[in-house]
Design a protein around this nucleic acid. Structure first.
Lengths: 217, 217
DNA sequence: GTTATAACGGTACAAGCGACTTGTAAAAGC
DNA sequence: GCTTTTACAAGTCGCTTGTACCGTTATAAC
C-alpha cells in the first residue's frame, strides 16, 4: 500500500477552505472546483476525500460546531479559578457574538448553513442539536447562581436560558447585517445580564471589551 | 400599441411564485425556469417583466417586506379602540413569529434573503433598513407605557426595544429550525413581556394562541 | 388599412455544475 | 520482484443555469 495519509487532517484542511468561501459567497456559491482551488488541490483530490458535496458539507458543519464548542470551553476555563456563574454566562454568551474574525467567519458560515438547514432535514438535525445542550448548560449556571443567592430563584429556569440564547442569537444576526456594531451587541448582552443579576454589573461594562479581545487571538 | 398590461401586478404575481419556491428550496434553488413554471408563465414572459434575476430578487424582497409591514399594522389596528402599549407590543412581536403559514413562509423567504444579504451589500441595505424603524416604534410604545405608569421609566429605552426584537428574532429562528414549537416561542414572548410589565400578564397567556390565529386567515 | 409596438413563446448558447471514469505513480505487503 | 492498493491528476459526462435573441401575435394609433 502507498504512503499513509491522515484522512481526517486532509478533510479538515478542505473544510477550512470551504469556510473561507462559504463565509463570503454562501454554500451554493462554493462549488467543488472553487473549494479545491482555495485549498490548493485538484478537484480529483478533493473528491478522493469527499465522495459527494453533501458529505463535505456535513463534515465541515460538524467540524466547525466542534471548534466553536471548544472555543467556548476554552474561554470559560480561562476565567479565574472559581468563576461566578455570572462570569461563566458572560463568557459563554459573548462567544456567540462576532467579536473577532474567527467567530465572525464562524457565524457567516453558520448563516449559510442555516439557510440550507430550514429546507434540509438531515442538516437541520445536525445544525442545531447543540441548542438543547447549550440551554441545559445555561440553566445549570442560572440554578447555581440562585443557590448562591445571586439571582432570584424564579429566574433560574429553562425559559430564562432560552430567552438569553435567543436574544444573543438575534443580536449576532443584526451585527452580521450591519444594523449595529459588535461592541453595541456586547453592551446589550451585558445590559441583559445586569437586568438578570442586578444593577451592580453596570460598572463591569467598561472592562468588558478589553476582557474579550485577548481571549481570541 | 397592443393591450395595456399592469406591470406591477404581473411582477407581484411572479414574486409570489418566487416566494413559494424560495421558502422550500432557497433563493439559489429558485431558477428562472422554476419560478416561471410556478407562476404558470413562460420563461420569455418572466424575462419580459424582469430583465435579470437580481432585478426580480430585489423587487420580491421589497414587496414581501411591504406586506409584512402591512400585516403588522393591520394586526395592531384590529385591537381595541384604545389598546394599551403592552397590547400593541404583543401584537407587533407576535407578528414576527411563524405562527401561521403566511408568516412562516415570509420568515423562510427572509432566511433565504438573509443568507445572501450578509455577502451582498445592496441586498443588505434593502433587507434590514426596517429594523431602526421597528426599534423606534417599539421604543415609542415603551415610553408611552412608562408615561402611563405601566412600566418602570428606566426600562423605556432603545436598548430594551432592541433586546426585545433580538429575542423574538432568535426565537423565530429556532422555530424554523425545529428546536421548539411556535406556541412555545409565543409563550416565551409573553413571558418576556410579563417580566417587563409585571406578573399580572401571566393569566393572559392562556387566551393568547386563540387571539393570534383569527387575525391571520 | 396600415403601421408601430407591447406582449409574449420558443430556442439557442456559453458557462458552470456535481458526479463519474480513466490513467498513472508509488509505496506497502507478500 | 511482483502484486495490490492507495493517492492523486485530468478529462468527460449529462444537466442546469442566466441571458440573449429570435419569431409571432394582437391591439392601439393614425
Amino acid at each position: 500500500m502507498p504512503k499513509k495519509v491522515d484522512h481526517e487532517a486532509r478533510r479538515r484542511e478542505i473544510s477550512e477552505a470551504l469556510w473561507r468561501i462559504a463565509s463570503t459567497r454562501g454554500l451554493d456559491g462554493a462549488s467543488l472546483r472553487d473549494v479545491a482551488a482555495e485549498a490548493g488541490i485538484s478537484l480529483g483530490r478533493l473528491q478522493h476525500y469527499f465522495r459527494t458535496k453533501d458529505e463535505m458539507l456535513v463534515f465541515a458543519l460538524r467540524y466547525i460546531n466542534r471548534l466553536a464548542a471548544d472555543r467556548i470551553r476554552a474561554r470559560i476555563e480561562a476565567l479565574d479559578e472559581e468563576p461566578t456563574p455570572r462570569e461563566v454566562l458572560r463568557a459563554c454568551l459573548s462567544s456567540m457574538l462576532p467579536l473577532d474574525d474567527q467567530s465572525r467567519i464562524g457565524l457567516l458560515v453558520g448563516a449559510a448553513y442555516y439557510a440550507r438547514a430550514v429546507h434540509d432535514e438531515a442538516l437541520r438535525a445536525e445544525a442545531e442539536n447543540g441548542i438543547p445542550q447549550l440551554r441545559a448548560f445555561l440553566t445549570g449556571q442560572l440554578r447555581l447562581a440562585a443557590e448562591r443567592g445571586e439571582l432570584p430563584p424564579e429566574r433560574a429556569t429553562e425559559d430564562e436560558a432560552m430567552l438569553l440564547i435567543s436574544a444573543v442569537d438575534g443580536l449576532a444576526t443584526y451585527v452580521l447585517l450591519g444594523v449595529h456594531a459588535p461592541e453595541a451587541a456586547l453592551r446589550l448582552v451585558d445590559l441583559q445580564l445586569a437586568k438578570l443579576f442586578g444593577a451592580d454589573g453596570v460598572d463591569a461594562v467598561g472592562e468588558v471589551a478589553g476582557a474579550v479581545a485577548p481571549g481570541v487571538g
